[in-house]
């Protein structure tokens, strides 16, 4: 994917959360957004995912600029996948039904086709034994992997993941990170917000450091992590990578 953001501003009431944020990536498979809490990463990701409409500015993926009306944005959302920090699976449905729902109701597969489509991914990620359980009966790691699968089974153009491991116990982060790393191998593009710096450095083609609603540093992973000229960015990494 190639992502161009121009003067993106988002205000809630009187607070300006994103302030003329601009970025232009090269042709990348993955982009990591890092930076301090409250810097605007989630706000940015929600706009990229078509969930929120910015106050002003434009987002362009591969030459196509996101529309500003709900109908077109919904059509856009059907072509991408979003994974939230707190999974947000549907608690009244089993894991399998969570995967099937978008296939049947959005992508117009028959129920049988949908069941067939989710079977292989469920096995591949060792989730088929748990497929009939409800989210409350699954671990955090299993929930998040189901949530990633739910976004994947519709074969999206790209995925947006907002701190997918931040709500997990440490022993469960590995299984989710492995799965995300697998995305890279399968050629699925993604934009990832994360605090797992070593992971970001390993999987992301480019990294953007977001702070105070703007891009403080951006480039290939090594350049952002190691040679940042911005003193705030350097100070942040010194803290988290210590």
């Amino acid at each position: 994917m190639r992502l161009t953001i121009k003067d993106l501003t988002q205000t809630f009431g009187t607070t300006r959360v994103l302030d003329k944020l601009s970025i232009e990536t090269g042709r990348v498979n993955s982009l990591a957004l890092v930076g301090p809490s409250g810097g605007g990463k989630s706000t940015l990701l929600r706009i990229l995912a078509g969930l929120d409409i910015p106050t002003s500015g434009t987002v362009t993926f591969d030459g196509t600029t996101l529309q500003r009306d709900e109908v077109n944005l919904r059509l856009y959302r059907r072509t991408v996948g979003t994974v939230f920090q707190s999974y947000n699976l549907f608690p009244h449905l089993s894991a399998r039904e969570n995967l099937i729902l978008p296939l049947v109701h959005v992508h117009r597969l028959s129920r049988d086709e949908a069941i067939a489509r989710v079977e292989e991914p469920l096995r591949r990620f060792q989730l088929h034994e748990h497929a009939d359980k409800r989210p409350a009966e699954l671990s955090g790691g299993q929930n998040q992997r189901i949530a990633i699968l739910r976004a994947m089974v519709v074969r999206p153009k790209r995925l947006f993941l907002d701190e997918p491991t931040s709500a997990l116990d440490p022993e469960m982060t590995a299984e989710v990170l492995d799965m995300i790393e697998g995305l890279k191998e399968s050629g699925t593009d993604f934009v990832l917000v994360t605090h797992a710096m070593n992971f970001a450095r390993r999987v992301a083609d480019e990294v953007a450091f977001i702070g105070d609603g703007t891009v403080l540093s951006h480039g290939p992973a090594e350049s952002v992590f190691e040679n940042s000229k911005n003193s705030r960015v350097a100070a942040f990494f010194q803290q988290v990578l210590r």
Partner: peptide, 16 residues
Amino acid sequence: KTQRDSARAIGLTQWQ
């Protein structure tokens, strides 16, 4: 509210 978000994210209409 996150449930509504999740439903929108997968492309459901408001009624769905």
